[in-house]
Design a protein around this nucleic acid. Structure first.
Lengths: 411, 411
DNA sequence: GGCCCTTATTATGGCCCCCATAATAAAGAT
DNA sequence: ATCTTTATTATGGGGGCCATAATAAGGGCC
C-alpha cells in the first residue's frame, strides 16, 4: 500500500462514494445520502455542494411529504459530460455517443473496410467524431473524449497497439494518431475488457465484484473484473482465453500454436467445420442455401440453420459450444467469480451456442462441490453495443474518476 | 469504494507503509524512511515514534559517518510477536513457531494419524502448542495465535471446514474446536493459499504483484495473489486447478467428475500409472525394487527412479508433468501473472516433474506472442515448510495488519 | 578549544478532513 | 398562532499532512 500524502484523498474517496450512490440508486435527499454512506449530515451536505458546483449533481425537487422541513432531492446529472465510443472488433465497426449514465444518444455503423488500413480506420473514426460534435444532442464543450474497443494486444497505458491479428496491425501508436486526428483524449482497451467494464458499470453485472466476461466471435477473449476493478495482468496481457490449449496437436491457430480454443471453436472453426461436413456430403438444409457450392456458406447461415434445428449445423455449433463451455468452466473453477457474462456476435446470433456453453459450465451432472451450477451466466445486457459503450465509459472513468467510486473530479 | 469516516485511516495506512518498508528493506535512519515513503520528516518521525511505542520497531544504532548530526537507525523488531503454524496436508503434519520476520524457531513433524480423526488432529496440535509455549525461544505473552494450512474447502472467514476429501472431514467447525483446545486465536486457510501467502510475504515471490502458486502432491491446488492481495473468489472457492477438466471422459476423480487434472496427473495417478505399466510387464528398475509385487511400489520410489533415469518411471512422471504444465500454461495465459511458484511434495521430490512443468509452461516452440516464456517459474523458497509458515504469517496479518502494509496495530 | 558546516530532529502554524453538538429554518399539525 | 418534526447550517474539537523555521549534535579546521 502506498503512503497517503494528503488527507484530501479522504474527501476524494467520499465524493466518489456519494456520486456512485446517486448514479446507481437514483435521486435522493441528502439525509438519505448521509444514512447510506454512514457519513454525518454536515459532511455529506458539503460533499453534495461540491458535486453540484462541479455540475455532476443537481437539485431536482423538494419533497414535502410528512411533517418537518421539506428535503431537497438531488440527482446524478448524466448530462454533465459525454463521450464517444467505437468498437473495431466486428464485421461492422460501431460508434456510439453516450452520456454519463451510458444512455446511448447516437449510434453509427459502417462495414469494416477491407483491408482495414490504419489510415482508413482513423478516417472513419474522425468523421464519426466530427458528425457527433455537430449533433444537436451534444454540447461540444462537454465532450470528454473518445474510447476505442479494439481486438488487439495493447501496451499497458500507452495506447500503443502491439499487434492485432484481427486487423492485421503491428506496432501502431494508435492512440496518438487518433488524438491528432480527432482532437480529444483517446483511451484504448481491448474488446473483451471493454465489454466487461460496460456490463459491470451499466449492464448485467452491476452487482458483481468478480466477473468473467467472455467474448465469442471470430476470436475468443475474456475480460476480468476482480474486486470490482478491471484486472489486466502483469503485462496487460490477461484474458487470452482463445489461446488456451484445448486439443493436443489440434488445428493450427493464427497465433502460431496448435489446438487453441479459438482455432477449434470460434467463428472460423464453426464455419470451416460446417463447410467440411457439407463437402463430405452430409445432409443439411445448408446444402440448398449453398446452391451446390459449400464455399458460399457464411457463418450466419450456419448459426441460423443450427437454431432452426438443422442436424449438421446444430452438431457443429454444439461441438464448439462444448469446447468453449469446458474452457469457461475451467476458468470458473479457477477463479470462482460472482457471475459470467457471455457476449460477442456468436453469442447474440446463436441461441444454441449460448445455451450449450451455459449448460456445460453449469453441468448439473456433477456433485455440487464447486458451486458452479448455481453461478449466474447471462448474455451481455448491452448486446452488440457493449464494446463501444464500455470504451466510451472508460473515458469517463479515466478522466473524471466515475463508476469506481474513487477520486471524482470535475468534468 | 467505501466512504472513509475518519482521517485516522490515513495514519494507519502510512504506519503500515513504514513498517513494511522496514521489514523488507532492513534497518535504516528515519530520513531514509521519509525519502522512501515520500512523506515529510515530521510525519515519518511521528510514525516511527508510534511504531516504537507499539514495540514493532526499535532503535538499533546511531550512524556517525560523514558530517552532520548522526542518524538514529531503526529496525523492524521481529521479536514483537510470535505465532504458530501447522500444515495438515502432507503425509506428515508439520508445525512451526515463527517470529514476525517468519524466521522459523522451532519445527515439529509427526506422521499423519490413520485415520486422521478430527479429535486426534486437535490433540496433536494442542500438545504441539503446549510444547511451544514452554519453549525457551518464546515469551508466552507474545504468542499471537495459531494458523493452520488445511487441504480443505473452507467457508469464507468462519474457519468452518465444509469438506476435505483428503482428511475425509465434512462440516467441521474446526477453528472453533481448535480455539477451545489451544486457547489462542485460530486462523484457517487452505494449503495452496497458505503457501502463496508465504512466498509472497517471505519467499520467492516477494516482488510479485500477481502470483500463481501451484501446489502439487496427492492433490493439485492453486493460491492466487492479485494486486498483492490474496484472492479467494466469490465463495472462497477459487483455485481448484486440480478439478479443471483436462481429459474428456478421463479417469474418475474423487470429486465425482471425470478427467480432472488431479485424477490424471497428481500423485495418485502417477503411482497408479507406474504400477499399471509394471503389471503390464514393462521393463523398469522398479521391478527389482518391488520385489515381484508391483503393489509394493510407493510414489517416492517412482519419482526417485524417474530422476535416476528409469525409462518407465520417467515416462509416467513426464506425462503427468505435461498435463500439469498445460493446465498451468492455460492459467498463465488467462491471468498473465508476474510469476509462478511451484510447491508441494512432488515438486520438491521430483526434479523431473518440476523441469517438465516449467518447460511446458514456457514452451519456447511457440512465437513469443504471449510473454509466457519469459515469465519466471520457480520452486517455493520455503519448501515443505511453506504451508505452515504461511498459515502462521496469516495470524500476524489478521491480528496485527502486517505484511500488507495496511492498518498496522499494536501486538 | 572555539567556530563553521552539515545533517538530524523538533516546533510552530496553516489547511483540510471528519465528527458531535447546538442553533436555525421551514414546513405540517393542532 | 403555536407546537412538532425534520432539514440544514454553524461552531468547536481532534486528527492528518505539509512547509518552514528553529534547535541539536556531530565532524572539520584553524
Amino acid at each position: 500500500m502506498e503512503p497517503i500524502k494528503d488527507v484530501q484523498v479522504v474527501r476524494q474517496v467520499n465524493r466518489g462514494a456519494v456520486l456512485e450512490l446517486l448514479r446507481r440508486e437514483g435521486p435522493m435527499p441528502r439525509t438519505a445520502i448521509a444514512r447510506a454512506t454512514k457519513l454525518t449530515a454536515p459532511t455529506s451536505f458539503a460533499i453534495v455542494d461540491e458535486l453540484v458546483a462541479a455540475g455532476l449533481v443537481r437539485c431536482v425537487a423538494t419533497s414535502r411529504s410528512s411533517p418537518g422541513r421539506p428535503r431537497a432531492i438531488f440527482q446524478f446529472n448524466p448530462a454533465a459530460a459525454y463521450s464517444l465510443g467505437v468498437d473495431l472488433s466486428g464485421a461492422s465497426f460501431v460508434g456510439v455517443l453516450i452520456d454519463l449514465s451510458a444512455r446511448v444518444l447516437e449510434t453509427r455503423r459502417v462495414a469494416r473496410p477491407n483491408p482495414p488500413d490504419v489510415s482508413a480506420v482513423i478516417q472513419w473514426i474522425a468523421s464519426f467524431a466530427q458528425e457527433m460534435r455537430s449533433s444537436p444532442a451534444l454540447d461540444p464543450s462537454k465532450l470528454a473524449g473518445l474510447g476505442v474497443a479494439i481486438p488487439a494486444l495493447l501496451e499497458a497505458d500507452s495506447g500503443h497497439v502491439i499487434t492485432s491479428t484481427n486487423l492485421n496491425w503491428h506496432d501502431v501508436p494508435f492512440a496518438r494518431l487518433l488524438e491528432e486526428a480527432v482532437g480529444t483524449g483517446v483511451y484504448l482497451e481491448n474488446t473483451p475488457r471493454s465489454i466487461a467494464l460496460c456490463e459491470r458499470w451499466f449492464g448485467a453485472a452491476s452487482e458483481a465484484e468478480h466477473l468473467l466476461c467472455i467474448n465469442i466471435g471470430m476470436g475468443i477473449g475474456m475480460g476480468l473484473i476482480i474486486d470490482g476493478k478491471l484486472y489486466v495482468g502483469d503485462d496487460a496481457q490477461s484474458g487470452e482465453l482463445g489461446h488456451t490449449a484445448v486439443v493436443p496437436n489440434g488445428a493450427p491457430c493464427r497465433c502460431g500454436g496448435r489446438g487453441c480454443l479459438e482455432a477449434e471453436a470460434a467463428g472460423g472453426a464453426i464455419l470451416r467445420n460446417a463447410v467440411d461436413a457439407l463437402q463430405r456430403g452430409m445432409a443439411s438444409s445448408l446444402a440448398e442455401t449453398a446452391n451446390g457450392d459449400p464455399r458460399r456458406i457464411t457463418l450466419d447461415m450456419v448459426v441460423n440453420a443450427a437454431d432452426e434445428g438443422d442436424p449438421l449445423a446444430s452438431s457443429v455449433v454444439r461441438a464448439a459450444g462444448q469446447m468453449i463451455g469446458t474452457a469457461v468452466r475451467n476458468a470458473v473453477i479457477l477463479l470462482n467469480p460472482t457471475m459470467v457474462v457471455l457476449s460477442g456476435s456468436l453469442v447474440h446470433s446463436s441461441q444454441l451456442l449460448f445455451e450449450t456453453v451455459r449448460a456445460v459450465v453449469q453441468n448439473r451432472a456433477l456433485p455440487p462441490l464447486h458451486r458452479v451450477s448455481a453461478m449466474p451466466i447471462v448474455r451481455a445486457q448491452l448486446g452488440l453495443l457493449a464494446g463501444a459503450v464500455g470504451a466510451a465509459g472508460l473515458v469517463h472513468q479515466r478522466r473524471m474518476g466515475l463508476y469506481d467510486g474513487t477520486k471524482v473530479v470535475a468534468p
